[in-house]
Computed example of a mutant assay.
Amino acid sequence: MLVIVALAFAVATLVIRALPLPNNLALVIAVGSPYVVLVALLGLVVAVLNRLKVLSIAAVVVTAASVAVQVHWYYGGRSGGVAAERVDMRVLSANLRYGRTNPAEFVELARRSADLITVTELTSEAVQRFYDAGIDEEFPHSMLFPAPDAGGNGIWSRYPLTPLSPTRYWNSGMVAARVHIPGVPIDPAVASVHITSPMGSFESWRNGVTATKSRLIGLAETVGQGSVVAAGDFNSTPDMRQFRDLIADGYRDAVRHTGAGFVPTFPSDTGLPPVITIDHVLTRHTNVTSVRSVDIGGSDHRALLATVEVPIASSRS
C-alpha cells in the first residue's frame, strides 16, 4: 500500500506540474515537486525490498520522470561561452523584506559585486538608509518608486538610465528603464519585477503573471535586437506551469540557461537553508555567464547575483 500511495502521489504531482495551476492547493503540490523525487524513490526502495516486480518497474519509471524534469531545468543548460565583443554587466537582484535589509551590508555587497541593482519591497525609509550608507557614491543613477510594505520597486545603476513609458511599465509590479552602456549600440532594457504572492490571493498572482508576460513582450518589442534583463521576486517556481509559460519570446531563465543547479532563495531567515526558488533573473538577447544566490541580512529572500554579457556587435546570441 505504501508503494502505491507514494507512486500515485508522485504521478499526481507530475500531472499537476504539467498543467496550468487552478488553485493554491495545486500550487503547493507543484512547488514541492523537487522533493517529491524522494517520495518516488521511497516507493522504489520499498518495492524492490519487497520484491514487487511490477511495482518496482513502475517505480523506476516514475522516479526517472520525477528526476528528469528537475535535472532538465537546473542542470541541463550551458552558458553560450564568452562573446568576443561584449560588456559584462553584473546584476544584483534583491527582495528587501519591507525595506528591512541591512543597508550597510547591502551597499557593500553591491559595491563589490554589481553594476546594476534591482530591488523589490522598497520603502521610503529604506531609500533614505541606503543613501545614508552611500549607495549613490557608486550607483549615481536610479529610478525608485518606494511604497509602504511590499509595494515599492526600484533600480540603481552605475550607468545612466532612461525611464520607459510609465503607462506600460511603471507600477508596483514592474519598473523598467533603458541602460546607457558605453560602446553598446542598442541600449539594453532592465526591469525590476515583483509579482504578488499567491498565498495572499491566487487570482491576483495569476493575473500578475499574465500582466508580467505582456510587459516582458512589450520590453522585447521596445528594444528590438537589444538586450533585456528582468530580475526580481516572481513568487513563482519553475514547477509552476504559468511561470514556465511566462518565459517566452526569446527570454531565458538564468539558472536554466547556465545549468547553475538548484538555487533556492526562500525562505532564508529560518536558520535552515532556503527550500524554494521564487526569485529569478530572465534575459533576452544576452548570454549569462554566471548566477548565484547570496544571503543578505534582514531579508527573508536570498539575493541573486548574475553576470550577463551585453554584446557590442549588432548580432545577438
Rank of each mutant, 00 (worst) to 15 (best):
A6R: 00
A12Y: 04
R17E: 12
P22A: 03
L27P: 00
V37S: 02
A40M: 06
R51Q: 15
R51C: 11
L52G: 08
S56E: 11
V61D: 02
A65K: 12
S66L: 08
V67P: 07
V67L: 15
H72C: 07
Y74V: 09
G76E: 12
G77A: 10
V87H: 10
V91E: 00
R100Y: 12
T101W: 02
E105N: 13
A110V: 11
A110I: 06
L116C: 09
L116T: 06
T118F: 09
E121I: 11
E125N: 13
A126M: 13
V127F: 02
A133P: 04
G134K: 07
G134T: 05
I135K: 01
E137G: 10
E138N: 14
E138Y: 14
H141I: 10
M143A: 15
D149S: 14
I155M: 06
W156G: 01
T162C: 05
S165Q: 12
P166F: 04
P166R: 14
R168G: 04
R168F: 08
W170K: 13
S172C: 04
V175I: 15
I181T: 04
P185Q: 11
P188G: 09
P188H: 10
A191I: 04
A191N: 05
H194E: 05
M199Y: 13
S201M: 06
S201D: 11
A211H: 06
K213S: 14
I217G: 02
G218I: 07
G218F: 07
A220P: 02
E221P: 01
T222P: 01
V228N: 01
V228A: 03
V229W: 00
F234R: 00
F234H: 01
P238M: 09
R241G: 03
G250I: 05
Y251K: 10
D253S: 10
A254W: 00
T258I: 07
V263R: 14
S268K: 05
D269G: 11
L272R: 14
V275A: 15
L282I: 10
L282G: 07
H285R: 15
H285A: 11
T286C: 15
V288G: 03
T289L: 12
S290K: 09
V294M: 05
D295L: 10
I296P: 00
G298V: 10
S299G: 13
R302E: 09
L304G: 04
L304P: 00
E309K: 04
